[in-house]
C-alpha cells in the first residue's frame, strides 16, 4: 500500500514534467507567433488553447490513474 502510494506520487510528478514541457512549447511558439503577427493574435490564442487543453488532458489521464492508486 505504502509502496504503491509512493510510486503513484512519483508517477504523478513524472506526468507533470511531460505535460509542463509540452504546454511550455505550445505557449512559447504562440507568443513568438503573436509577436511576429499581432493581428493574428485571436486565431493563435484559440489554437493554442485547444492544443494546451488536449495536452493537459493527457496529463490528467495520468493524474487520474495515480488517483486510482491511492
Amino acid at each position: 500500500m505504502t509502496a504503491g502510494l509512493a510510486l503513484a506520487s512519483i508517477g504523478a510528478g513524472l506526468a507533470t514534467v511531460g505535460v509542463g514541457l509540452g504546454i511550455g512549447r505550445v505557449s512559447a511558439s504562440a507568443v513568438e507567433g503573436i509577436a511576429r503577427q499581432p493581428e493574428a493574435a485571436p486565431k493563435i490564442q484559440i489554437t493554442m488553447l485547444i492544443a494546451a487543453a488536449l495536452i493537459e488532458g493527457f496529463g490528467l489521464f495520468a493524474a487520474v490513474i495515480c488517483f486510482l492508486q491511492i
Partner: peptide, 16 residues
Amino acid sequence: FALMIRLFANILAGHV
C-alpha cells in the same frame, strides 16, 4: 472520453 476526464480531473485535483 477526453472531455469527460478533463473536466472531472481538473475540478477534483484542485479540490484534493
